[in-house]
Write a protein that binds this DNA or RNA. Structure first.
Length: 425
RNA sequence: GUGAACGUAGCUCAGUUCGGUAGAGCUCUGGAUUGUGGCUCCAGCGGUCGCGGGUUCAAAUCCCGUCGUUCACCCCA
């Protein structure tokens, strides 16, 4: 071995045993989204590369070094979707959704692709659940979007998440702020680490993220965006905060929260989980009032979030033990001799047609082996069929929990199993 | 892209220090008086010790490279 082909680096297989919890999370999410009025959107897994380079921003890490970009056979540059907002915005424009009643509220469950170095909670292909609301610049919808995510976490029992919020300002107030911050950083360049020197050039606000103590000390004295917001942005931020309080959503103000996409304006936010380790962000998002226009649509405000399904699952596994698991079959059919196998096969067909989940042996196992399988399958009943039962046109129903057996007429088997199933509820 | 640790049966791992031609538990299959599970006992299946090269009479064990995993940086979900 060793010549074995394995899943590509940073990817993983989702096995049957992993499906139940995942489906449950996605199910709860879709229910929450429905309640808040979001409709599902699906877009292609790849897009023209310029959608991302233009939409997400040339200066972002995603565009600079993390995209799965390839040329198709027609010579077009395509990119596997690294994030969901730009494709959603593209679809909004392409389908003329600005002519519908605003806001247009969309949700998605999509795989995302980023060429990154994998680590705990970080993959090259991962899934995100997300929503986008286009067309309204009301701060109430910022608060609602955050409320949707908070509701999702609450309903799947993901406790211990902390919400951080910040405002990035708008095209009126941010440029001035960034200029003054950059000036400040240049003044203190000698005290900063080389990485921060680079950050100051590309995205000065990133320097707030630096872990180096010297940098942090310098940054303590740096001008803050919160203090430079224009009156409109300050008011917007204030209203968002008030409506978070109204929904009983606790949050902390974090002026250092700078998210990785260039399109954010005004509100940005991120939920972090203490149980996740270094990749502590479970979900985040914000407002992007200039994005739609940037990709060639009419000027349209928007706000949304993305939350990582793998990180939700990881956090759930570390904080809860009562997670959903796969449903066992209702009955496991056992053939006592070779001639009964056909009979059992026919019975399986009948019961399955009637809607029951039925298992039976296809490995030529001994009776003992079949019983073992019946037990392992978790089915509440084994239905046993042999010479005796064939003669009587019956089936022996065995209740696995007690071992109690009873021969019943074959035509009553379905009924008995269904009844017993209902009793247990 | 950078750094560190690790890579032995499907899974969890021992064996690597002081090189001598592969082990355990779990899983899986069969059996413990003929048509029956969960506990126990017995037996069996299953690995060219990630891959490639080097040192050596001899390497899972030492050296180099490579791929992968994990954790961290970076960044993000």
């Amino acid at each position: 071995m060793g010549e074995r082909i394995t899943a590509p680096k940073g990817t993983y297989d989702i096995l049957p045993a992993d499906q139940a919890v995942r489906r449950w999370v996605i199910g709860v999410a879709s229910e929450v989204f429905r309640r808040y009025g979001y409709g599902r959107l699906d877009t292609p897994m790849f897009e023209e590369t310029r959608l991302f380079s233009r939409g997400v921003g040339e200066s972002t890490d995603i565009v600079r070094k993390e995209m799965y970009t390839f040329e198709d056979l027609g010579g077009r540059s395509m990119t596997l979707r690294p994030e969901g907002t730009a494709p959603a915005a593209r679809a909004y424009v392409e389908h003329g959704m600005h002519t519908r009643p605003q806001p247009v509220k969309l949700w998605y469950h999509w795989p995302m692709f980023r060429y990154e170095s994998p680590q705990s909670g970080r993959y090259r292909q991962h899934y995100q659940l997300g929503i986008e609301a286009f067309g309204s610049e009301s701060p109430l919808i910022d608060a609602e979007v955050i409320g949707v995510l908070a509701a999702l976490y609450r309903e799947i029992g993901l406790a211990q998440v902390e919400l951080r919020i910040n405002s990035m300002g708008c095209r009126e107030c941010r440029p001035g702020y960034v200029a003054s911050l950059r000036a400040f950083l240049e003044e203190h360049a000698v005290e900063l680490c080389p990485e921060c020197w680079e950050r100051a050039r590309i995205n000065p606000m990133r320097t707030f993220d630096c872990k180096v103590r010297g940098c942090r000390l310098v940054l303590e004295g740096a001008p803050r965006l919160t203090g430079s917001l224009c009156p409109a942005c300050a008011e917007h931020h204030d209203v968002v905060r008030r409506h978070l309080v109204m929904q009983d959503i606790p949050f902390v103000e974090d002026h250092r929260l700078v998210r990785g996409m260039d399109y954010y304006t005004r509100t940005t936010f991120e939920f972090q989980s203490a149980v996740l380790g270094a990749q502590s962000g479970v979900g985040g998002g914000g407002r992007y009032d200039d994005l739609v226009e940037t990709i060639g649509g009419p000027p349209t405000p928007g706000v949304g979030f993305g939350t990582g399904v793998e990180r939700i699952l990881l956090a759930l596994e570390r904080s809860r033990s009562d997670l959903p698991s796969a449903q066992p079959p209702s009955v496991y059919l056992v053939a006592l001799d070779e001639t009964s196998r056909s009979e059992v096969f026919a019975l399986a067909h009948e019961l399955r047609t009637a809607g029951l989940a039925v298992e039976l042996d296809h490995m030529g196992r001994s009776v003992k082996g079949q019983m073992k399988q019946a037990s392992r399958s978790g089915a509440p009943f084994a239905a046993i069929l042999g010479e005796q039962e064939r003669a009587d046109a019956g089936v022996t129903l065995k209740r696995m929990s007690t071992g109690e057996e009873q021969q019943v007429p074959r035509i009553e088997v379905l009924e008995r199993i269904v009844e017993a199933g209902e009793d247990e509820r």
